[in-house]
Amino acid sequence: MFRQLRTALRAGIVTEPAAAREIERIGERLASEIARLFGRSLAIRQVDAGSCNGCELEIGGLTAPHYDVERFGVHFVASPRHADCLLVTGPVTRNMAEALRRTWEATPDPKFVIAVGDCGRDGGVFRGSYAVLGGVAEVVPVDAVIPGCPPSPAALLAGLLDAIGRQRR
């Protein structure tokens, strides 16, 4: 039981503070933007609308010790009722279209939607297939897009900031 604890304590805090100065600058801007809109607290509900899970792995990296998005007041929630932002991945397959729309309806205002990845933007590599609708904007109003296949966690952070900045305008 204590072996894990010992390993973690020996490793220390691995969150990259200013390693990529990019991230830190983005992070601070993110924090102040969130502060203005949501008072330093953002709850994200991630929705998988038929993605290959590559974007999910990168999003998972956001909460890992190296990127640690929680230090900026952002956390992931299980229910859309608790969420402020929907992070949608995938090209929106026909099977998931209605589910995505109901999830958006279940989220209380004020809310915004971020489409993640090339699939979320316009269908990505699956564009034109009979099984997909071709991008999240086909189903719910999208406030921001983070392109990439898949986008790195640093790009995700930048994209989040962009979205919130656009909201402000």
Partner: peptide
């Protein structure tokens, strides 16, 4: 004091 009525959250189930 906005309140909105919507269906129960069922993971987007139809």
């Amino acid at each position: 004091h906005r309140t909105r009525d919507y269906e129960t959250w069922g993971c987007g189930r139809i």
